[in-house]
Design a protein around this nucleic acid. Structure first.
Length: 874
RNA sequence: GCCGGGAUGGUGAAACUGGUAGACACGCAUGGUUUAGGACCAUGUGCCGUAAGGUGUGAGGGUUCGAGUCCCUCUCCCGGCACCA
């Protein structure tokens, strides 16, 4: 029987040649616009987006291809499910990453980007993505960044962009400031240089205004839980209270005279009668521990730290502030457990027990969080505990855990029952938090407060390769106190008709490091007429953060080609295509790109420009393809480019190989062993379809079994596709192919037109199932076997459907156990397999089973219909 | 420290609501085909054992007729956050 099949195999050997078909179909698809949906008329729009790459000039590496392949397979699958899939591609090539590369190779970024663009798009097409090549965008294209600048202008107009002097993260190597999110372990995320603090005036976006919505909306969107958690952590909401501690004791050396002592707590309306310097305000999340406060600590940078210090201590305090400022962040971290500090000489009064407690200054307290002052509760906070031990401050227990005595070796940070807490003693921590907060609020000594870790988004970059921030500063207006917004006298946005503010060509574009962008070098460019008074003004010379480019690009894609309107998108198109149905990208952007994009969408929504708040309905984080256990990167020198593999084995093989490596959300380690195996598999698929069109299965039993297998295969692959479990889907297809090969061995070849319907259907199904993974092979096989006169791509064919009742096996194998140990199996018809009687009868006949039952007393028999039989004996 | 995710053959990995652990591949071995190599085809392949059989999902305990899967304790690895009060 077998040899009949073998003849074909030998005849068909080596028939599959990827080089002959891949380019051919890529050209055809482009010509036919197979993957360009009709944006205006599409009936079932589906926006399948993947994170656009920043093009390193080496070109696309296998890590990129891995990510895009998985996303593209999703798009192709949805297309076959009947959707008008829009799958755009572009380049995020404006920004530090591209500029740094240009500097390294000593070429101008304009020239570099021209080259990388060509190379990247070529590679992407060769890798077999179903992109809409009629709608690409590059962030460095003035037609694009015109609108990035427009976004900035709107942010300014709506009061969400502001300028302030602030302590910012400065990368000495990139010579620019960085957003908090771009600092990883105190290092610049781009070049791993230690970041230092610098005081500079910068542009910020008020993302903190949206903190609550950014947090709450997370519950409404279908995103990887991992990413949601990362965002929640980053937003870092904590519920607490602000409590005012009056100053007591000599307020000293500063020239400012205060009337502080009188304010200590007894007036009717203390809030109003006090000067701000009469009290210090703390932020804490554990008001239940307030009776355990034995000292207060101010951050060294706190404005009051010098003011409250006494004459005797002021020199020491000054010295301490100076040294802690000089410390780099790194040192401050390294000494994290050192708990250095200095006493100010001043005292405060705990409003809950009127106790006089000392005020200290220590750099374990951060100015940037809360009020920059904490209440020191050494018994119940480990940091305070260490500080108290070191500086010999009193430690008082006020929370006791159930029945246990506190060991005094380290702080007890858990919740418990209050002791030594006046009238609050005996309450549980939970109750006390409530009651103490209420008490503070009622007596005007404090209030509830929600505190976020999230800070405003630092937008300015002192670099060349980015969109110039479209702002103008007029000195004359500034002097006159005129300006678009209060508090920002002299600042005007560039009028929208004048956008884009084109990036001038500057030969020496390298960053200078003086806290100023190289754009400042072009004096004629800087000079501009004030939009308000027409006198000579100057342009802002900083460019905006790369993440602004990518925070809104998804809105642009479907609108490319639309005539420019007053806003960068057409409302109808946007309504039809957005929000994005599926967004696929790396989890490394969890707190950067994804947070910024959400923020801007909310702002656009609030201005009435779009009607959704969340830009990405579904986000799926793919895993990373790594190399030898390490992330692929130029600095590690382990970047693998897919070109040679594509050339050797074909894109279809490489794509499938990547997806077969392991679960898509898990990534994997790139090795080239095994690619050949995938190629072999497609050789078999090819031979199967091209070699055996005319086949009659020799009996109806085989035909029936074939039908069951077709439906089982469809079911399995479909379910796996739905869950993006491509590795399983491919395994399912392989099993199916293995089965078909066996069937072919049994079949009888026929001449001429005679065909067996089941077989024909089996092959068509195979080609469709394979199509998302191996688009070129599928197209070739489809067109040459079932293609009509008019070209209709296999990728527009309907995904095969299955009937659940047809997936049921005709016979079932039932495992038989004795005391839970497998002793044999019986094969029965479906009906019999559901009857305990029938199964038991067959099972007892088994030698391996009867042997273990002999001489034993039967206790019971467990039977799971169609599943299992277990004899329990003793 | 906190929050996530993991740990299954020589390797990548499967295993639906607890029900034949290792599907599907890679690799390896043997045989076939081939002038040779490669490619291709067949068979085998968790471990110990000639076999019968035993044993086996990071470690230990528990629940159950039955545990990779559920519960408790612990170890290690990866990712994120981190002096956030």
């Amino acid at each position: 029987m077998r040899h009949v099949g073998l003849k074909w195999v030998m005849a068909a050997q080596f028939a599959y040649k990827h080089s002959a078909i891949e380019k051919k179909w890529q050209k055809r698809w482009r010509k036919e616009k197979t993957f360009s949906p009709d944006i205006a008329k599409a009936k079932k729009p589906y926006y399948n987006l993947m994170m656009f790459p920043y093009p390193s000039a080496e070109g696309m590496h296998v890590g990129n291809m891995y990510a895009f392949t998985g996303a593209d397979i999703w798009g192709r699958y949805q297309r076959m499910r009947g959707f008008d899939v829009f799958e755009p591609m572009g380049l995020d090539g404006f920004g530090i990453h591209s500029e740094n590369y240009a500097i390294r190779i000593g070429e101008h970024p304009t020239a570099v980007s021209k080259r990388t663009q060509k190379r990247f798009y070529e590679q992407l097409e060769r890798a077999g993505g179903s992109f809409d090549w009629t709608r690409t965008l590059e962030t460095y294209d003035p037609a694009y960044y015109k609108w990035t600048q427009w976004v900035f202008v709107q942010m300014f107009k709506k009061g969400l962009a502001y300028r302030k002097k602030a302590q910012v993260n400065w990368c000495p190597s990139c010579k620019t400031v960085l957003a908090d999110e771009q600092v990883i372990n105190e290092e610049c995320e781009r070049c791993n240089t230690k970041v230092v603090d610098r005081e500079l005036e910068q542009w910020f976006f008020k993302i903190t205004d949206y903190a609550d919505r950014l947090l709450n909306n997370l519950d409404k969107i279908d995103w990887s839980e991992k990413v949601k958690i990362a965002q929640r952590n980053w937003i870092g909401r904590s519920q607490g209270v602000l409590i005012q501690f009056s100053l007591a004791g000599p307020v000293g050396s500063s020239s400012r005279s205060t009337s502080s002592l009188s304010a200590a707590g007894t007036q009717r309306d203390p809030l109003r009668s006090r000067h701000p310097q009469d009290y210090v305000e703390i932020f804490g999340t554990r008001p239940d521990t307030i009776f355990g406060t034995t000292f207060l600590v101010l951050a060294p940078e706190h404005p009051l730290s010098l003011e409250i210090s006494t004459r005797g201590q002021i020199q020491k305090v000054k010295q301490y502030i100076k040294t802690s400022q000089k410390k780099s962040n790194e040192e401050r971290m390294a000494k994290a457990r050192g708990k250095t500090g200095v006493f100010t000489g001043a005292y405060a009064v705990n409003p809950f027990n009127n106790e006089k407690i000392p005020i200290w200054i220590a750099d374990y307290v951060l100015l940037s969080y809360g009020t920059g002052v904490v209440m020191g509760v050494p018994a119940h906070d480990q940091r305070d505990f260490e500080f108290a031990k070191k500086h010999k401050l009193p430690i008082r227990e006020v929370i006791r855990s159930k029945g246990e005595k506190w060991n005094r070796k380290q702080a007890f940070e858990g919740e418990g029952v209050l002791v030594n807490s006046g009238k609050f003693s005996g309450l549980s921590s939970r109750e006390a938090i409530e009651k103490i907060s209420n008490h503070a609020q009622k007596n005007r000594i404090g209030q509830r407060k929600v505190q976020y870790h999230l800070r405003d988004w630092l937008i300015s970059r002192q670099r060349y390769w980015g969109p110039p921030i479209p702002m103008i500063y007029c000195e004359k207006c500034a002097k006159g106190g005129k300006g678009e917004h209060k508090g920002m006298a002299g600042w005007y946005p560039v009028p929208e008709k004048d956008l884009p503010v084109k990036l001038p060509h500057i030969k020496n574009y390298q960053p200078k490091g003086a806290g100023e962008s190289p754009l400042a070098l072009d004096k004629t460019w800087v000079k501009v007429a004030c939009p308000e008074c027409q006198s000579v003004a100057r342009r802002e010379t900083d460019v905006s953060d790369t993440f602004l480019d990518s925070a809104w690009y998804y809105l642009r894609y479907p609108n490319i080609g639309k005539k420019d309107d007053a806003i960068p998108w057409n409302r109808q198109v946007t309504k039809k295509w957005l929000p994005v149905n599926m967004y696929i990208g790396g989890a490394e952007h969890a707190v950067l790109h994804l947070m910024y994009s959400r923020f801007l969408a909310m702002a656009f929504h609030d201005w009435g420009l779009i009607d959704f708040e969340e830009p990405f309905t579904r986000f799926y984080a793919h895993g990373l393809l790594i190399k030898d256990g390490d992330k692929m990167s130029k600095s590690r020198g382990n970047v693998v480019v897919p070109d040679t593999y594509i050339k050797k084995h074909g894109a279809d093989t490489v794509r499938s190989y990547f997806m077969f490596l392991g679960p898509f959300d898990q990534g994997g380690d790139f090795r080239d062993t095994g690619i050949a195996g995938m190629n072999r598999f497609y050789g078999r698929v090819w031979d199967l379809v091209t070699g055996t069109q005319n086949l009659i299965l020799d009996n109806t039993g085989d035909a029936k079994a074939t039908y069951v297998r077709i439906h089982q295969a469809i079911k399995r692959v479909t379910e796996d596709m739905e869950n993006l479990r491509y590795n399983r889907a491919i395994a399912g297809i392989m099993e199916y192919v293995n089965f078909l090969q066996d069937m072919r061995g049994k079949g009888v070849p026929t001449k001429g037109k005679m065909r067996c319907t089941e077989w024909e259907e089996a092959l068509q199904t195979l080609v469709k199932l394979v199509a998302p993974f191996a688009p070129h092979i599928a197209e070739e096989l489809w067109q040459s076997n079932w293609g009509g006169k008019k070209f209709v791509s296999v990728h527009l064919q309907a995904w095969p459907e299955f009937s659940p009742e047809l997936t049921l096996e005709l016979t079932l194998e039932i495992p038989v156990q004795v005391n839970g140990k497998l002793r044999g199996t019986v094969r029965l018809d479906r009906e019999q397999a559901g009857s305990q009687k029938a199964v038991e009868k067959e099972a007892r006949k088994l030698e391996g089973v009867s042997r273990h039952l002999k001489g034993k007393k039967g206790k019971k028999v467990i039977f799971v219909p169609e599943r299992l039989l277990n004899f329990v004996v003793s």
